[in-house]
Design a protein around this nucleic acid. Sequence first.
DNA 1: AAAGTTGCCTGCAAGC
DNA 2: TGCTTGCAGGCAACTT
Length: 268
Amino acid sequence: MPELPEVETVRAGLAPVWQGRRFAKIIVHRFDLRRPVPADFARILEGRRILNVGRRAKYLVVDLEGGALLLGHLGMSGRMIIGAGGDGPHQHIVFETDDGGRVAYADPRRFGLMDLGQDGRHPLLEGLGPEPLDDGFSAAVLADGLAGKDQAIKSALLDQGVVAGLGNIYVAESLFQAGISPLRAAGSLKGDEIGRLVTAIRDVLERAIAAGGSTLKDHARPDGELGYFQHSFAVYGRAGQPCPRCRGAIVRLVQSGRSTFHCEICQA
DNA sequence: AAAGTTGCCTGCAAGC
DNA sequence: TGCTTGCAGGCAACTT
């Protein structure tokens, strides 16, 4: 499911039901996720008050009393479901709060993870690049991240150390909006192109968040509502269909093993 | 059949 | 020659 807008949508859905509450009971049905769930996962979290439900890149970051930290990643197919029974298919972890609220983490492909950190820190959060919607994300910062790279700009933007939170969909949409070919060497982009890219990334992410993310298959808000940004895709998943700008055909190719969609005329 | 993820692995090429 | 670095590609987890 989830790139930055989808995770942000999940965070926003979880915050009102979790913030200020305590975890009363946590049941782990499966410990063998992408990385093993710690054996003391439930024991560490139970009884603690939830101070903040946050997000960094594609990670959910939940701060609790005593400096405890819950780190979640939804992988490809992970969902957080408010009010779930906890016994549905692939509901690997069930979180119960002290007001009787229940949230289930469901993930058929089990490519997500749930782990513990401390004092706002976790090894997986280190080395992440700038948050694209923060003020600190500027053309100068992105230029720095791309400098000297021979790698294709498509691949560079998927690198979470260059900019945090973009995935296959939003890289494709951002490069289209900026008019830049995904095949260009990252280090070859000119200043004005990087400026356009920063603007495009921000705009695409903000529009996607406003739409509740994109629902291709698995993504849903925790309350069950679906995102609808997929109806606004200019290029993603639209191979052979007309480019919204020039009417030429959208082309699909494979880069670093992932599908790339672009318009060969509008993206130079 | 291909899919929104990402850490780890291999292999290759280039640079020093 | 070997060592390092950068990059591409494959794999793994599963269901639809």
